[in-house]
Design a protein around this nucleic acid. Sequence first.
DNA 1: CGGCGCGGCGTACGGCGTACGCCCGCGTTG
DNA 2: CAACGCGGGCGTACGCCGTACGCCGCGCCG
Lengths: 255, 255
Amino acid sequence: MASERKATADPARSLAILWRTTEPASRSAGPGLSVDRIVRAAIDIADAEGLDALTMRRVGEALGVGTMSVYTYVPGKAELVAVMIDSAYGEMPRPTVEGDWRARLERIARDNLALYQRHPWMLRAETTRPVLGPHLVAKYDYELGAVADIGLSDVEMDAVLTLVLGHVKSAARAASEVVDLERETGMTDGQWWQSHAPWLETFMTADAYPTASRVGTAAGQQHGAAYGPEYAFEFGLQRVLDGISVVVAERATAG
Amino acid sequence: MASERKATADPARSLAILWRTTEPASRSAGPGLSVDRIVRAAIDIADAEGLDALTMRRVGEALGVGTMSVYTYVPGKAELVAVMIDSAYGEMPRPTVEGDWRARLERIARDNLALYQRHPWMLRAETTRPVLGPHLVAKYDYELGAVADIGLSDVEMDAVLTLVLGHVKSAARAASEVVDLERETGMTDGQWWQSHAPWLETFMTADAYPTASRVGTAAGQQHGAAYGPEYAFEFGLQRVLDGISVVVAERATAG
DNA sequence: CGGCGCGGCGTACGGCGTACGCCCGCGTTG
DNA sequence: CAACGCGGGCGTACGCCGTACGCCGCGCCG
């Protein structure tokens, strides 16, 4: 398939599945397959074993059904993943947050981080051409609410959200890769850095690369403390919010 | 293989290839295969047709050689991609930039964006457990130079760089996906948004989601103008740099 | 001039996504 | 109550992928 992209040719079909606008299959009322059951099974697999373990054969198996039966409800794997994504968005809380825009954005960032932690496969499945399912739309609307009425233009509001969510995704990806590289290689990040240290010292010598070797060591120790990704998330988030506050302040006084 | 990750089990072998510490194959002096020739061919394929088109069979073909011959020089596809990445880093300019830290970071951001534009496959191949090749080390050292001596701690220097490069990668990924979805679907982003517009209006109605529909339209028009990703890059970069300037100022006065 | 090490590679295996067409049991209709 | 048709369910097969394994034949060293 390439790599979980392409919403495929037929938007009508995809959107019908996302919004569940087709009848819920009347016939026998027995257990029967359904988009929902398929999506739930698929999410369980992906949560537990990652996107690579999510194969159409596995999904069929998990449902006690032949592989090809899945294709009755879903045109292909790409579309299945799209529905999985939208479904995951549906789990997110949308509380009314006390406080200013900064508190609201910070909360949004943390909620999105938590989502990615619960469903790390999303980090490899999402694309920029959005899925346009009901839950994404609701999420977008909710999150825009955090930056409405603070003097930004519509385009700026979208850009602010894109920036914050982009940072969350970067940081989440870093954290998630640490986790599943540990699972795949059976080595913690600390152990990995330690095993590479002798080589590093051979090549990245203090004379040839003074800054890199000093800072790399300091940063590497953070990784050893299994605390690198969280720090990067927090540090970056505060910087991003600081940066946003500059425009907000500008708009408040000038425009 | 999963998805272009895992530097595989044997670090020694991988590092030897990255740093080219083995002899350059004496025997017949004829054209002969070599890590360099393989990497160049692979990069050409990935540049032209994307990471999905990069198969070991294709690489062999491009070199007029059997598929399995490639495995004589490279333990597997993951390692090949790792060498490709390090090799690409080697192309980057490392000029001495006039001006303050902000000018230097901005330049770094643009250079990295240009790199990703030249080699979009890198956006899907890089992981956080770095490749540790010679060019990455040189790049890291160079880039750290931009934020040295402005009062930040070592860990902060690393965090600042991570933040800026993370933003560049986010923005580059967005831009790149637009480009290759256009290639894959034969539809420009504008056309895609237009073809989905009727559906969107059906579901994302102004009554149900007032903010989303208004802002979505505004942002969608930007995409129609094929100018969305660049704007997101610029806007985000300035915000990030503004945010960094806050810590820099703090350190200058207080710490 | 004989032997052998190694670069080069043919074949084959197990996995993937999915196209295609068959079967069978159900709800509907006469 | 019988016949029918339709659609959910699925078995098989194809063309891809990465790569393990073991064979060849060339060119250098003794």
